[in-house]
């Protein structure tokens, strides 16, 4: 038996479901497969929760070999991973997080530009991660998307673009500031995920969960440093590829279940789910200016085939029977 030392790290703690699943699914499955022959064993040196790097350096840390294996948070790598931003800049194209991951897995194999944007950073992608679904959390119930006109909503980063055209003002912040921001009137509510809202107890200050089931987005990947990868025996590589696929599938399934569980838990704790009438999501998405084009145009100018990728992404969704809320590619 040969022992291989590998460092595995993340910017976020293991209580974040997909980070915890690196341990419980990716690492565990790799160990399991390797144990079948007993030729190799991996001695994992775990440095989860920002011990080695923070959220602003998830890509470079894997790239530079500061960690061997790590979760790369593509949301925060807009410039270096431009095509990975497609799903959040073509909002509400699918409300099925598992399918979202499946499609990105396929694109990674079929779209060279997408694969290159990851692999040029000296790494090999093993598993993919995504978000659950977005809803609008408010102090008073909404009767539709028109009702947010004039409101201040916590919606940092790209979520702010989702509020363009709605008349609502996007308030900057982070998950950790939402609670106080709403409590103290900095904002009137937040556009956020059930998985994010539950741990920060957002429902205590914004008890109305206006359920839009607004599409989840691709958020990143579990990746391994290329130099480390090239030095691994083939058997270990094969085991990791399989474990990575298992991780992606399990994570997709977990997102769907956990989203519902989180909503139920919040209701149990006093939140109220307000189901939006049919067509509100389409109405919302059509209020927006062409945000997909705003995203794609500057990339095209730099020679990055963003429009082609966008089409391929939406077509892949349609091929699986999804109906994007807006045809961003047309």
């Amino acid at each position: 038996e040969e022992v291989i030392d590998l460092t595995v790290a993340s910017s976020h703690p293991t209580v974040v479901p997909w980070v915890g699943m690196i341990q419980t699914h990716f690492m565990a499955r790799t160990d399991e497969i390797l144990a079948e022959t007993g030729n190799y064993r991996i001695a994992w040196n775990e440095a989860f929760g920002g011990q080695l790097y923070k959220a602003n350096a998830t890509l470079t840390s894997v790239e530079d070999g500061i960690t061997d294996v790590g979760w790369v948070f593509s949301f925060l790598e807009q410039a270096k991973l431009p095509l990975s931003q497609a799903s959040s800049n073509a909002p509400f194209s699918t409300s099925n997080p598992a399918l979202q991951l499946e499609v990105h897995q396929q694109l990674l194999e079929s779209n060279e530009a997408f694969r290159n944007e990851w692999e040029q950073h000296n790494l090999k992608v093993l598993g993919l991660t995504g978000t659950d679904l977005y809803d609008i959390y408010t102090k008073a119930p909404l009767d539709g998307i028109d009702a947010i006109d004039g409101m201040k909503l916590s919606a940092p980063g790209v979520l702010g673009t989702w509020l363009r055209g709605t008349g609502a003002n996007a308030v900057d912040g982070a998950l950790t500031t939402f609670y106080t921001d709403v409590q103290t009137g900095v904002s009137d509510g937040a556009v956020t995920l059930a998985l994010g809202a539950l741990p920060i107890k957002l429902y205590e200050v914004a008890p109305y969960i206006n359920r839009f089931d607004a599409g989840g987005a691709f958020s990143g990947a579990v990746a391994i440093n290329r130099d480390t990868w090239d030095g691994l025996p083939e058997e270990v590589q094969t085991a990791m590829v399989e474990a990575g696929k298992y991780y992606t599938q399990a994570h997709g399934k977990d997102l769907v279940e956990r989203h519902e569980a989180a909503l139920n838990k919040m209701v149990e704790l006093g939140a109220k789910v307000v189901d939006m009438p049919d067509g509100e999501l389409v109405k919302w998405v059509n209020k927006m200016p062409d945000v997909a084009s705003d995203w794609a145009t500057p990339l095209e100018e730099r020679g990055i085939p963003a429009r082609a990728f966008l089409s391929e992404y939406l077509d892949a969704l349609r091929a699986r029977g999804e109906t994007p809320a807006r045809d961003w590619d047309k």
Partner: peptide, 20 residues
């Protein structure tokens, strides 16, 4: 524990990112 390249890049990353 690791090697020169990782050490230098780690320190440089700290210098550029940790106060951001």
């Amino acid at each position: 524990t690791r090697n020169e390249t990782v050490a230098v890049r780690m320190m440089t990353q700290v210098a550029n990112d940790s106060l951001e």
